[in-house]
């Protein structure tokens, strides 16, 4: 920590903070997260026999599940349209690109990381692909009930399989964001937008140094 200069660096009462996520990025994250929880809850009621029996009201739960899926897409689109699109394109480029350090990091060799570490980049790619697959398979389930041209024997298997894998990813994500001591400070970046500079130097050194080169 040789420098506290730079436009993205703020002084807190005890520590120096750097801005990690923009409002648009945070809005996208929380739209996705809240929709996922409603979809998971309503989906489990439709899927687990005990819960189906306990809750009943299947037509209503089905409507909640379907309408949340639509609301999720519309809200994501709204955030993109109304938010900082140029910033999002930059984020997308960051998520897409894996440099040599990222590749070594994935092989568990400690290397300095950018604003997203390689695991976070992969998680973002998977989350986007799963979003697409959930949406397509969900829509096919919906249309399949109305028109047999949209009926495939494997649609429900895909939708369920995605649920199981996402559940595992979600648990890992929650563990790192809420429980694991060395990483859970990241949550602040997703709520307030900023993270402690010393923490960022430890976890995302290349990004911090790019913003305010040492000795600047």
């Amino acid at each position: 920590m040789t420098s506290t200069h730079g436009s993205d660096i703020r002084m807190g009462s005890e520590a120096t903070y750097v801005r990690r996520f923009s409002r648009t990025e945070r809005a996208l994250h929380w739209v996705h997260a809240s929709a996922f929880f409603v979809l998971l809850g309503s989906g489990l009621v439709l899927y687990v026999p005990r819960l189906s029996e306990l809750v009943g009201r299947r037509p209503l739960v089905k409507d909640v599940h379907f309408d949340t899926g639509l609301a999720w897409l519309v809200a994501l689109a709204l955030v993109v349209v109304l938010g900082d699109r140029r910033g999002l394109r930059r984020t997308l480029r960051e998520l897409d690109a894996f440099d040599q350090d990222d590749r070594l990091w994935l092989r568990r060799i400690p290397r300095p990381q950018g604003r997203f570490n390689a695991g976070q980049k992969l998680n973002a790619a998977l989350t986007a692909a799963f979003g697409l697959l959930f949406f397509v398979s969900g829509l096919l389930l919906w249309y399949g009930e109305r028109d047999n041209r949209f009926r495939f024997a494997s649609t429900i298997l895909l939708h369920d399989g995605l649920m199981y894998v996402s559940l595992v990813l979600l648990l890992g994500h929650l563990y790192l964001a809420l429980i694991y001591p060395s990483t859970r400070h990241a949550l602040r970046g997703m709520t307030r937008g900023t993270v402690r500079r010393d923490w960022a130097l430890q976890h995302h050194r290349k990004w911090v140094e790019e913003q305010a080169p040492p000795g600047a």
């Binding site: 897409d96 350090d101 692909a129 799963f130 494997s154 298997l157």
Partner: peptide
């Protein structure tokens, strides 16, 4: 300087392609 590879889109497209094609072979 380090060589950058676009693994992000590859992961996205790869998983999407496997997922969509599983509609035909999944069961």
């Amino acid at each position: 300087p380090s060589e950058t590879k676009l693994y992000g889109r590859r992961a996205f497209l790869g998983v999407s392609a496997v997922g969509l094609s599983s509609l035909f072979w999944g069961k």
